[in-house]
């Protein structure tokens, strides 16, 4: 029983991590059909910005709770600055190109931003554990948990709800649906698709940066942290269906819970789980579990 509760909480905790780091990727893909490798950079820059500012302000004597403000500010600032720059300078000129060309461009952006991190922050790790230390720990079913990780489950739920409200319950969401379905028909119906793309890319960038900024307190923020996130988030998004937020939730939950089960009972399988789930899903549904309708003519 104790182990089952531990598996559930560990699984939910890891699922929320997976969802937080992949939601931005799936949103950008869903609307813009861009597989954004630079997503890893948003994550890394979000993490670096948060860790840098938390360290800086903590050193200046600000209280620990101020770290939460800095996490949010870092995510918004990184997403707005880097997201806007990439969209304006590079992607804007490439929308007419093939998807694979855009993918390569985002990969190039990723490599450049990785090197810029080295130039700006150097090779030594940054730590921002103050927010995590502030929230402390709680004992659940015999296992001591850090409250910060449990808070991340809450953050994942908030992000999921906000996305759902925006997409399913607002005019904005309906306009997005049209652009997702068919960019040209969106244009013909008077939708300013360029503006939609800017907002979407910046929102996706902010979510990617929020992932990094929110995870930063649990990490050693060091060079290369964005690389793994690309692989993980890509796997989650492929399992759930590229471009589907519901799919990202289900994909993250499947991988998170199965992985927690594996780690507790057969740890050798841990590495294998995520790709086993991916392979199994792709065999049954090559488009992923919740792939939104592509521009299929009805």
């Amino acid at each position: 029983m104790q182990t089952i509760v531990a598996v559930l909480i560990d699984g939910l905790s890891y699922s929320s991590y997976l969802f937080i780091v992949s939601v931005g990727l799936t949103i950008i893909f869903g609307v813009m059909k861009i597989l954004n490798v630079a997503h890893g950079s948003f994550y890394a820059w979000g993490a670096y910005a948060a860790a840098y500012f938390i360290g800086l302000f903590h050193g200046m004597g600000f209280p620990h709770w101020f770290g939460f403000v800095l996490i949010a500010v870092s995510a918004v600032a990184v997403g707005a600055i880097i997201g806007l720059a990439i969209e304006r300078i590079i992607l804007r000129k490439m929308y007419e190109h093939e998807e694979v060309h855009i993918l390569l461009a985002t990969f190039g952006v990723f490599l450049i931003l990785e090197d810029v991190i080295l130039l700006v922050f150097g090779v030594n790790p940054y730590f921002a554990y103050q927010p995590m230390a502030l929230l402390g720990s709680v004992k659940i079913a015999g296992v001591t948990r850090d409250v910060y990780s449990l808070t991340l489950i809450g953050l994942a739920i908030v992000i999921a709800l906000a996305c759902w409200l925006c997409l399913a319950r607002s005019k904005w969401g309906k306009i997005l649906k049209v652009v997702i379905f068919d960019r040209e028909i969106g244009l013909a119906m008077g939708i300013n698709v360029n503006a939609v793309y800017v907002y979407t890319f910046v929102a996706g960038a902010m979510l990617g940066a929020l992932g990094g900024a929110a995870i930063a307190p649990t990490l050693s923020v060091s060079p290369g942290i964005g690389i793994d996130v690309i692989v993980l988030s890509f796997a989650v998004v492929v399992i759930g269906g590229m471009g589907s937020i519901a799919g990202a939730i289900i994909g993250a939950l499947m991988v998170g819970l199965l992985r927690a089960t594996a780690v507790h009972f057969v740890p050798e399988l841990e590495l294998f789980v995520i790709f086993a789930v991916m392979a199994a899903v792709l065999m049954v549904r090559p488009e992923g579990l919740f792939a939104p309708a592509r521009a299929r003519r009805i």
């Binding site: 699984g11 905790s13 991590y17 296992v143 995870i215 927690a260 780690v263």
Partner: peptide
């Protein structure tokens, strides 16, 4: 991997 929550529980 970066995230060790599950491993720490185990």
């Amino acid at each position: 991997a970066g995230q060790y929550g599950t491993e720490i529980s185990t």
